[in-house]
Design a binder for these strands. Sequence first.
DNA 1: CGATTACCTTGACCCAGATCAACCTTGCGA
DNA 2: TCGCAAGGTTGATCTGGGTCAAGGTAATCG
Lengths: 211, 211
Amino acid sequence: MKYYRSFQAGQSIIWAGDPMEFVGSVVNGVATLTQTMEDGRRQMVGLMLPSDFVGRPGRAAAAFDVTAKTDLVMCCFRKKPFEAMMATTPHIAQRLLEMTLDELDAAREWMLLLGRKTAREKIASLIAIIARRDAALHLRAAKGGISVDLPLTREEMADYLGLTLETVSRQISALKKDGVIILDGNRHVSIPDLNRLLEEAGDDGDGGMLA
Amino acid sequence: MKYYRSFQAGQSIIWAGDPMEFVGSVVNGVATLTQTMEDGRRQMVGLMLPSDFVGRPGRAAAAFDVTAKTDLVMCCFRKKPFEAMMATTPHIAQRLLEMTLDELDAAREWMLLLGRKTAREKIASLIAIIARRDAALHLRAAKGGISVDLPLTREEMADYLGLTLETVSRQISALKKDGVIILDGNRHVSIPDLNRLLEEAGDDGDGGMLA
DNA sequence: CGATTACCTTGACCCAGATCAACCTTGCGA
DNA sequence: TCGCAAGGTTGATCTGGGTCAAGGTAATCG
């Protein structure tokens, strides 16, 4: 019934428009959903971390490009049998609905970020989002200084945030200079004061920011 | 079981954080979901037209402000009984899942618009989105010139698109000057050539753009 | 009918972030 | 161990859209 698939970092999982033959959830690693315009402008529209569901029951073709950003393991179901199972097992549809509603809320937070936040706020928000997802996954309590591994390059962060990679780099440097974050290499970030970071992110208190 | 509620144009339906006591779908009129930052920056995150579902089964408090933008009629269910019905009637959860997945796709198109499109493309996209939704509703075939009533003020369009109202006004004037649209009053738009408009919108061909 | 109010347009100027360009750092494979 | 490629930083300059400001238009109400 279910089976596992592995992908290498950088490998495309499916292209927009391709027929989808499976659905599944991320077990390990990071995948992204992106849209591309004909002239090459790109926007990330989904960041899939372990436990996220990928695919769209009831649709024949993929709407977005899906790419593994790290080595990735997915737990997959062939789409047809999965749809049949959904029809006969109400619990599955209900669970999937719950997950989809959470994802929709997250997308709406993301829309606020894209439409109204400054570059600095966008970077702070992204780090906060990854930190929160990370914490939820590892159940590691947020005591003292939190530390996070960024699963994305500067360019991928730019695609997430609707910025250019140069602006991402500059704003990360600025947050570091101001002591909001501490860098250890390019990918590893420590957060001495989470409230300070959330303030920089422009989130009132905390908000939803579920994914 | 179900009952109808009416709201006047401009009336708030629910504020973010308030307890939700009902869910329902729009029968007539237009409602919006918006998010507001403490300093007043606002981003629309949902535009609800007739047939759209409003509310979140399985969540106690509203995540966003919901406002009637025109006189509005909704078909409502008290939330608790609706949730019970969902648990016992699989078909409902499945239908709601389908609608939520469509909304998520639409949100992802919207993210591309917010993150990567120019002001002119944003305006053209918005007009195209409303025209498509309109056409789907009225089943009026898109022959020759299409015409659309904008249910939003310039300011509300700005909140939709992540722009200021001045930029919205300027870009509408520019599209008019270039013959892409024809204005009849402030709210009524004729589209002489839909393909031209879609080109201006930066949509490759047509895309999803479901809501 | 004139006045108020809500909405819209247009102009002048400014600035956050894009663009263009040079260079640095790190890791890997021959 | 050298060379190259991928990723990252930083500087200089430009520009699309924001901001500030001044009217214009049209519906509504004494």
